[in-house]
Design a protein around this nucleic acid. Sequence first.
DNA 1: GGCCTTGTGTCCGATTTCGTACACCGGATT
DNA 2: AATCCGGTGTACGAAATCGGACACAAGGCC
Lengths: 285, 285
Amino acid sequence: MICKRAYDGYRTDNDRADPYKTFPQDASRSALADACGTSARPTGRDIAVSMQVSKVGLPLDNKLLASLPRGDFARLLPHISTIALQQGAVLIEAGDEVDHVYFPHYGMLSLLAVLRDGKAIETATVGREGVVGAMAGLGLYKSLVRVVVQMPMAASKIAATHFRTVAASSDPVRNLAIRYNEVLLSQARITAACNALHSIEARFCRWLLQCADRAASTTVPLTQEFLAEMLGVRRTSVTEVASKVQNAGAITYSRGVIRIIDRAALTRMSCECYETLVEQSATLS
Amino acid sequence: MICKRAYDGYRTDNDRADPYKTFPQDASRSALADACGTSARPTGRDIAVSMQVSKVGLPLDNKLLASLPRGDFARLLPHISTIALQQGAVLIEAGDEVDHVYFPHYGMLSLLAVLRDGKAIETATVGREGVVGAMAGLGLYKSLVRVVVQMPMAASKIAATHFRTVAASSDPVRNLAIRYNEVLLSQARITAACNALHSIEARFCRWLLQCADRAASTTVPLTQEFLAEMLGVRRTSVTEVASKVQNAGAITYSRGVIRIIDRAALTRMSCECYETLVEQSATLS
DNA sequence: GGCCTTGTGTCCGATTTCGTACACCGGATT
DNA sequence: AATCCGGTGTACGAAATCGGACACAAGGCC
């Protein structure tokens, strides 16, 4: 039963206790979800982890943070800690209180709508151009979506209370949240249309393109099972289209790693939605 | 070809010139899309149209306007005109400048994502609990969706420039826009999930329930063709499920009028999304 | 009354996607 | 080297949905 697969699989009792929950299939991977707890302000104490800075990036790698006026950014900075996130981790669960705001440095988060039967489906993705949980700084306290980590990544993390305080007296910070929310809205709408009108093959290709952009790489480290969840289809359907796309020469893949060989071909096999997403995102930023 | 049907059908050259565009099939209906131009403040001049007030409602019929503090509402009021809208009218076209903000008094608007091939699909609906175009008051000038009138209705209309001016110095007005945007986001996400995971039958039923709520009536004045557009499916698919739902005793219908006979049965045949929509909307308001 | 137009019903084969079961394969573990 | 397990391939019938064609029916209009 789908219900069982999706729900029990993704939310065990263990998961609930651990804020950096992992999907079962990731249990065997190296546990790199250790919050570094490094203030971005380099103090003596932090020199020890400076090696990790290159690994986890800097707050200014996030485009929204980078776009803030110096003064406003400076007010957020003391509250920022940098955190590494493990692939598959559930950053925020649907229905939970949003108590932190996350600004990705690199990598990709997915926002999933969660149905009562436990099925979950992607409604938007967030990379270093965005933020999740920012509306918690403007009065919305409960998340309506599940936020999962699509690939190993790092982010700046700010307690919602701190973010709220700064936002209350900083127009740029408030506007950042509002404007990015508009991007999320646009993405959700396009996803709604795409889900209703486009084939699995087209959606599969669209998703790979997005993901490759976010990874800034032609290699996408994802299993077909994972992808099937995102697209809301059977795993075997993904296998079928993946195989077809591979035969067409656009990608190769093997055991959890998909490589894009011919981006143009992939674009041709995808729907217009990829381009629309890029365009609208640009328009709104 | 769907493309031809949807696109050419819905945007002729005539349509472009007329701000209150109508769908072709509505051309024969009485043209009641006359903007009343009545300020809600009853001046002597307006007594002549006071008969129409009961027909078109009052600004305070809109729940968002009604929720505003007296003072803030008073600042919007001078700029409000009341307008009647014809079923099928396109209030805002995707890509167009948003130069007015609309607060429905009753009835229902649909927000449609428009694809390049002209196909359009519903991503959210707005009734008297909401507003469209409000983000134009916060820096977003171009609409990313098409807004169409689902049933004869009336709304308060404010020039975006005026709304912007008031919003700039009124927290409640600004918050209203931001908060309602959150509702639209929630709706779009649920729609995305529903489109991907639920059957046409379930979505058909969900839509009727929503529509009936907004109409505050058990009668929904819509053709199957129209509904098919909203759901992004073939007209004949709608006929099939409509017939099935009618045989189940939940509705009766005939030539553009659907009547809900057994709401409980209809709810049972619909997906959870109807309830989720209601809940999330309540949570966010 | 006859004629259109619009809305609905039905039928057809084609295609996509589903649900499920099971085989296979490769890398990690032991 | 043997084993295990997560990831992938495949097969099959069933169901949903599509695309398109066409017939029918209700109501307005002449």
